[in-house]
Amino acid sequence: MNHFARLGLPAALDLEPAALDRAYFALQRQWHPDRFVAKPPEERAKASTEAAALNDAYRTLKDPLSRAVYFAELKGVELPADGKTIDDPELLMEAMEAREELHEAGSAEAVHALAAKAREDMKNSLARLGSLFLRDDKPAIRKALLRLRYLDKFAEEARARRMNLERSSA
């Protein structure tokens, strides 16, 4: 069963966060181990398997980027697995230059500005994904998702760098 079906939601790129939360919390109550303590072991085991699968589905669908990657997989777009490399020069040059810029940013404010730009870029890129799926343009979807992965990593690195800079200036 795919993660959307498990939560009783239609498979879609865009999900209303409140609808996802509602579906998750209702099912989580239904499969809560406390309700199965007095039940036979098979039922207890099934409840715990369901609860784990439910958590996995919720985690995957909650974050817009991980949801987009998952939705793309359902649509037959394969992204490189762990340990697989890519050599797209345009994408990697952009990622390399962004990381260099971040590395050279000397103040928490400068890092903050770069992070804000990356977040804005992510938001816009995620918003544009919908039309790529409508056209079923798999290479473009793949490239957009890879680029988003690098933007996501950039945002993570920017947070770490900002904390370091704030700590050293405090």
Binding site: L79, P80, A81, D82, G83, K84, T85, I86, D87, D88, P89, L91, L92, M93, A95, M96, R99, L146, R149, Y150, D152, K153, F154, E156
Partner: peptide
Amino acid sequence: TGLVGAPACGDV
């Protein structure tokens, strides 16, 4: 020049 990346971990 070789430029490669591992997108799963965001390395370049």
